[in-house]
């Protein structure tokens, strides 16, 4: 199994603060890699560093064998990476349609792809011409994910997609991500919802204080409750 994305010894500073303190991680091709950890552990910072939104101050990031750590965000995106930020960042002044038009940067939207997305997120069809700002939180999350998959991408970086979603929508989302994985995409997924993490994850990385403190298979972590408690605190079981 080759690694599509690899970080080795990545440090990131924000202003004077040393946030990432030597991250080594790999996201194997075609698998879902979960990134877990407490609030403030540095998960979002890791994704933003991969995306080039915070510059890595040292270390190496490779995508499909190519060094990308000093590339600009648009270059990284154009190499087939899409990003679903924690804040969703839909363009609220634009309509749902316009959001997706922009996301399809290689040309007009593909109708089949669109139908496939509507299958998971029917709300998007319904609010096709509404301002994205008027969508509900969950609908914005759907739009944000739809933006990331409107064209096929090699690597998806998704930050806490289930945050604030109703259980039914979480199920739809899990189905959707599984389907994306089946189509061959590699996913690096930050998730606090352990249930979703267990459903989706092939591998798992646990972060704390800007470093990776555990790596292994999801199945192993899922079946080892004491380890979960040690790594993630007691709150996780309650999260389900």
């Amino acid at each position: 199994m080759t690694d599509l994305l690899k970080l080795s010894g990545v440090h990131t500073h924000i202003g004077r603060y040393h946030i990432l303190q030597g991250i080594d991680l790999a996201a194997p091709q075609g698998q879902v890699t979960m990134l877990l950890g407490r609030n403030g552990a540095g998960k979002t910072t890791t994704l933003r560093t991969i995306m080039g939104l915070w510059p890595a101050s040292s270390g190496e990031i490779t995508l499909g064998g190519e060094r990308i750590e000093s590339r600009a965000t648009p270059d990284i995106a154009q190499r087939g990476v899409s990003y679903v930020p924690e804040s969703m960042a839909v363009f609220s002044d634009l309509t749902v349609k316009e959001n997706l038009v922009l996301a399809a940067r290689d040309g007009p939207m593909d109708d089949k792809q669109l139908e496939w997305i509507f299958g998971f997120f029917p709300a998007l069809r319904r609010f096709w011409l509404s301002r994205a700002g008027s969508l509900s939180g969950g609908q914005k999350q759907m739009l944000s994910i739809a933006r990331a998959i409107i064209e096929p991408r090699k690597l998806l970086l998704i930050d806490e997609p289930t945050k604030g979603l109703a259980p039914a929508i979480v199920m739809a989302l899990i189905e959707c991500l599984k389907e994306i994985k089946r189509k061959g995409a590699t996913i690096l997924l930050v998730e606090q919802n352990f249930f979703a993490a267990r459903e989706l994850g092939d591998n798992v990385l646990v972060m704390d204080n800007g470093t990776i403190v555990h790596r292994g298979e999801m199945a192993a972590l899922a079946s080892d409750v004491p380890l979960q408690e040690r790594l993630l605190g007691l709150s996780l079981e309650a999260h389900q």
């Binding site: 939104l53 648009p74 960042a89 922009l102 933006r147």
Partner: peptide, 20 residues
Amino acid sequence: LLIRAGVENREMVEALGYRI
């Protein structure tokens, strides 16, 4: 559209692959 999107969130426009 890009300009309007960029006004609202420049980073996200870049993350979609546009050189703003």
